[in-house]
Amino acid sequence: MPLLFWSNITPSVSADMNSGLLAPFTAEEVIAAFRDINPRKSPGIDGLPSGFFRQHWDLLGEDFVSLCLDLLRGNIDMASVNETVIVLIPKVDKPTSMKQLRPISLCT
């Protein structure tokens, strides 16, 4: 039965596309992804937005790219950077009870 099911599905990813998807990550891809982040958004657990890293790229860029590539390639345990901060966002002005707050998680 499973073979019959799969034989009726037309692949939508070509062999060339698949080889591109399976290719190792590159420094250029990490840098391009980082450039797509708004410099005032996405503060890390340390509170520093991406603009800080852009401003000090000459000092931090090589280490940043190296860390990202090590994580993407499985050389470093993801738990070392996969932390979440829970923040309470008020639903109303001047909340007086927990019901008036919405918890959200900010993932690094």
Score class of each variant (00 low, 15 high):
Phe52Gln: 02
Lys91Pro: 01
Leu60Gln: 03
Ile76Gly: 06
Pro49Ala: 11
Leu48His: 13
Arg73Asn: 03
Ile86Met: 15
Asp46Gly: 11
Ala79Ser: 15
Trp57Cys: 01
Gly61Ile: 12
Val65Trp: 01
Ser50Ala: 15
Leu60Ser: 04
Val87Leu: 14
Leu60Val: 06
Val65Ser: 04
Leu72Ser: 12
Gly47His: 09
Phe64Met: 04
Asp93Met: 06
Leu88Val: 03
Leu60Lys: 02
Phe53Pro: 01
Gly47Leu: 08
Ser80Pro: 12
Asn75Arg: 12
Phe53Leu: 06
Gln55Trp: 01
Asn75Ala: 09
Arg73Cys: 02
Ser80Trp: 10
Leu60Asp: 03
Val85Thr: 14
Lys91Ser: 02
Asn82Cys: 12
Thr84Leu: 11
Val81Pro: 02
Ala79Val: 10
Asn75Glu: 11
Phe52Asn: 04
Ser66Pro: 05
Val81Ala: 05
Gly51Asn: 04
Gln55Val: 00
Phe52Tyr: 06
Asp46Thr: 08
Val65Lys: 01
Ile89Trp: 11
Asp63Arg: 09
Leu88Ile: 00
Gly74Cys: 03
Met78Leu: 08
Trp57Leu: 01
Pro90Trp: 10
Asp93Ile: 08
Phe64Ile: 03
Ser50Ile: 08
Leu60Cys: 04
Leu48Glu: 10
Asp70His: 00
Gly61Ala: 11
Val92Trp: 02
Ile89Val: 15
Gly47Cys: 08
Trp57Ile: 02
Asp58Ser: 14
Ser80Tyr: 14
Val87Met: 11
Lys91Gln: 02
Leu71Val: 07
Ile76Val: 15
Gly61Phe: 08
Asn75Thr: 02
Asn75Gly: 08
Val92Glu: 07
Asp70Cys: 01
Arg73Val: 02
Pro90Met: 07
Glu83Lys: 12
Val87Gln: 10
Asp77Gln: 14
His56Asp: 00
Pro90His: 15
Pro90Asp: 04
Glu83Tyr: 11
